[in-house]
Design a protein around this nucleic acid. Structure first.
Lengths: 344, 344
DNA sequence: TTTAAAAAAACAAACGTTTGTATTATTGTT
DNA sequence: AACAATAATACAAACGTTTGTTTTTTTAAA
């Protein structure tokens, strides 16, 4: 702790006032066990001397750090930042702070981060698993060690043993594709990300089910799974996809806002009119979907709210008595389609 | 610290092996004072028992938390996130973690955050002052308490007593406007944010100086200072600005990427051709400047690098011997113009 | 006044480490 | 076999709080 050794502590106040450390501690805590006049004297002196409590000592003694650890796959995705904002918003009203770590989309780093948090620095953990994460044991271990964990986004079956918050990706995709179908679209393209990622798999399921429900044959040429290393590679993949001669879509459902914007960029360069010639729907509704010309119709994902809910579940666990057997909780949030210029 | 009471500690290992706590501690530390065979036995047992060191106790004892506190004005600006990425990148190689807090653009909240960090939770602090921040004393106090502080972005004169990293906003704006002038532009508009904010003031200075240097009269009608509450209000202000009959710019220098994109959106809606009729330059080069159609030429601000530099200055301070009198350090990073489609 | 009850404050252990100093065990020398 | 010298380990204080228990002081009743 980067402070000089002459930092004022309880002992200094106690010495100055000829009181015991315990009394000073209780006085500053507004504990009624110490006399009103003493309490005032202590508080006055503490202020005069510039006393600052030592959070670390407090934590060691009380067994609480009032810090929530948050592990996200990456910083540079507005979705995660928005969720963090939601978490921060909620926990700050409960006197908690958040410690954010990035797993940089690596399972090993996720395990490492978890272990680091397990060293007692945090009271609870919020985790968004990477798409590399196929197991639950590393999470289960933390839970078994008595540290509450809540998950969000990209939750696979195995992880249902932990509290979590998610959206119904399949349903959301279904409704977007259904929207296209009801507008009379027949050649609906799908642009998703790495197939191993749960959210993309689910959204693809929703796409297929919508086509199936309305008896529209699926055309493999209209389907693209980006590898999504970065925006530049996405751009290249999407470009060559639409430049292929087999492609004649009249609508495109994309699994992220970025894919949606890159798709529109590509289509505009190719001379398409949006939405007259072709419609586009994005997924997420963060960033600049509303700034682009034309603005992008989106499946809106309630990111901030998701953060709040995740935080709420965690704080609830933290305030439960230790011995009661925790009942697993799952919250599924609703999505909705925000209509803009990229669709008729 | 959210863990069950039955958590394994040094004492448990010591008891099991009939050793003292000190020896166990040293063994796990790879301290040569303990015999090779003992060391191995201890490490083996620690693993078997599932020992996890208690970070809080470690911190109390060692006086170091290995946490860096970072205070940014807001989460939802890619610039700050990018800086945080840079910080994280640098400090993680030095075995530090970052604790990010948002001051929500409020001076009071900044003071509060600083005080909270001063309670011994962090070894050092990185701060980006809000635009409300006009004083230095609250920062000076923290420094005087022995906690290293490094500042970035929006640094006013008063704060020069602390290490800081910045760009030359005036020079950057000057070069962007000069670029326009050399392309033959005569009616160069300026779109900035709240005038109290240092960065916007400096960029405005650069704009004025460029005009002045090339003997171009300044036209008040071509200047807009947005209040910048959120993107929606920016949009409205920029819209009504360009819809005014007095405005006939042939180029627009905007102080952020967002302003640049909103400007292009407005101009496109009004039927302008970019860059044929009018050119636009943004500032920052984060987010979607390269995705927009047309893509936006930008003054690129090295955000990630800024984070790394800030972190480097802080880590340097942390590794200095306590008694030496710290020599204040200032790093000014270079900007450059990234040419894209919005300029000829 | 003495004494019991209540109020106020002091004492001391605990939280889980680190680390300087003291003690015990081992080795090598004669 | 006795004795240094050194290696290995144990002891104990310290980090700055919190909090249960005990002691002292004050108040009020007899």
């Amino acid at each position: 702790m980067g402070f000089k050794k002459n930092r004022i502590k309880l002992e200094d106040i106690a010495n100055k006032l000829n009181l015991s450390i315990a009394t000073v501690s209780r006085a500053l805590d507004q504990n009624p066990r110490v006399k009103q006049s003493t309490r005032e004297k202590v508080i006055q002196t503490a202020n005069d001397m510039g006393y600052m409590p030592n959070q670390i000592a407090k934590s060691l003694s009380s067994g609480k750090t009032n810090i929530i650890g948050v592990i996200i796959p990456r910083y540079d995705e507005p979705f995660f930042i928005e969720v963090c904002r939601g978490i921060d918003h909620y926990v700050s009203t409960h006197n908690y702070k958040i410690l954010i770590s990035s797993s940089r989309n690596s399972f090993d780093s996720e395990v490492e981060n978890l272990a680091s948090f397990e060293r007692g620095l945090v009271d609870g953990i919020i985790l968004s698993p990477t798409h590399e994460t196929k197991t639950f044991s590393h999470i289960k271990n933390v839970i078994n060690a008595g540290i509450p964990v809540v998950l969000f986004d990209n939750i696979i079956e195995e992880m249902h043993g932990a509290d979590h918050v998610l959206i119904d990706d399949k349903k959301a995709a279904f409704s977007a594709v259904e929207f296209f179908i009801k507008k009379g679209k027949k050649q609906i393209a799908f642009i998703g990300g790495a197939k191993e990622k749960k959210v993309f798999k689910d959204r693809f399921e929703g796409y297929k089910e919508a086509l199936n429900t309305y008896n529209i044959p699926m055309n493999q040429n209209l389907i693209l799974h980006c590898n999504s290393l970065d925006r530049k590679s996405d751009n290249i993949e999407i470009n060559s996809f639409f430049n292929s001669p087999q492609i004649k879509p009249d609508a495109v459902f994309t699994c992220t806002d970025n894919y949606g914007l890159l798709t529109m960029k590509t289509l505009l360069k190719l001379g398409y009119k949006i939405p007259e010639d072709i419609s586009v729907i994005g997924f997420g509704d963060l960033g600049l979907a509303d700034v682009f010309v034309p603005s992008l119709t989106c499946v809106a994902q309630p990111s901030f709210e998701m953060g709040q809910k995740v935080a709420e579940l965690l704080i609830n666990q933290l305030s439960e008595p230790e011995n009661i057997n925790h009942q697993k909780k799952v919250i599924t949030l609703d999505t909705k389609i925000i209509l803009r210029e990229s669709t008729p």
